[in-house]
Design a protein around this nucleic acid. Structure first.
Ligand SMILES: [Zn+2]
Ligand SMILES: [Zn+2]
Ligand SMILES: [Zn+2]
Ligand SMILES: [Zn+2]
Lengths: 154, 154
DNA sequence: GTTGCAAATGCAACTCGTTGCAATTGTAGC
DNA sequence: GCTACAATTGCAACGAGTTGCATTTGCAAC
């Protein structure tokens, strides 16, 4: 994905941001990863190339990229945020509260809502990469099944 | 809101959970607060009544109530999560990334999406209390205005 | 009112992410 | 190649929330 990396670099330079070694490495790792990556994992990978890499710097670079709209982050309920370069078309995630399964859905289903929020409230919602929590099909039936409840019941 | 407090207690007991002093105080404060409250604020209020109250216990009780679907929490981007007893009908929040303004909207607009996710993916989404980020009307025009960008520009 | 025991608590240590600030570095202008 | 200066980094301290585990307690059974 050399193309994507060059596009990221171009965007940064167009906005007057510097290209530092650590930032370049973050960009290259992000652009060659086609799934979500946590800050922790990203830091470890950056350190394979640049061993003095620093937590704050990675976070700050991720913040910068997100602010420029080049990457997005999402919290899938795993206790850490995950990042990825924007894919087109956009996608969202349905996260089952019970079995933790994550279903990826296209952003199409969200376009009508986005339009309605814009029309009714003048609000331009970022419908880029959402996590929606709920119950998957299987866990809905299971929950319906046992209405008897004990504390700590699974 | 005595009625709401009693309803909460009843739900807890129906599920076999104990009624401890600290938990009772958390319930009563939540049920007499008609807006969002952070865990920190809640802890301070609990301590006005029960001065030895403990951070973990407050968090664990909030988790329990959320798990039972009695309260919901939302992250409005303020660096801390806010809690509230469910109001009916449900509402959501539109948060402007730029001016931090929060617009409250009814859950109606989200019903169509919820239906679609259920039909197409069998997923029962919790559309109880979401925070959607984006740009308010005013900040959209402002952003359109200045296309010149410098690092650190506001 | 005693007893038994799971539920709940208290506490300290931990994780993830953020922040303030001093030191360093990229880069534009010369 | 220097210089200047803002952008970036490194670090350590911080804040919100979680967790493991030993202790305590609510409550139901007797
Ligand atoms: Zn994704
Ligand atoms: Zn499930
Ligand atoms: Zn709300
Ligand atoms: Zn705004």
């Amino acid at each position: 994905m050399k193309k994507q990396y060059l596009a990221l670099v171009e965007q940064l330079e167009a906005h007057g941001y510097r290209l530092t070694p650590q930032r370049e490495i973050v960009l290259s790792i992000l652009s060659e990863t086609d799934k979500h990556v946590s800050a922790e994992t990203l830091l470890l990978r950056v350190r394979q190339v640049y061993s003095r890499a620093n937590k704050s710097v990675v976070y700050r670079n991720l913040d910068l990229l997100a602010q420029l709209g080049l990457i997005s982050c999402v919290d899938l309920g795993q206790g850490r945020v995950e990042y990825e370069v924007h894919r087109h078309p956009h996608h969202h995630h349905l996260v089952c509260r019970h079995c933790k399964q994550v279903i990826e859905v296209s952003a199409n289903a969200f376009a009508a809502l986005q339009r309605e929020l814009l029309e009714r409230h003048g609000f331009a919602a970022d419908m880029d990469h959402l996590a929606i929590f709920g119950l998957c099909r299987k866990c809905q039936s299971q929950q319906a099944a046992h209405s008897g409840h004990h504390p700590h019941a699974l």
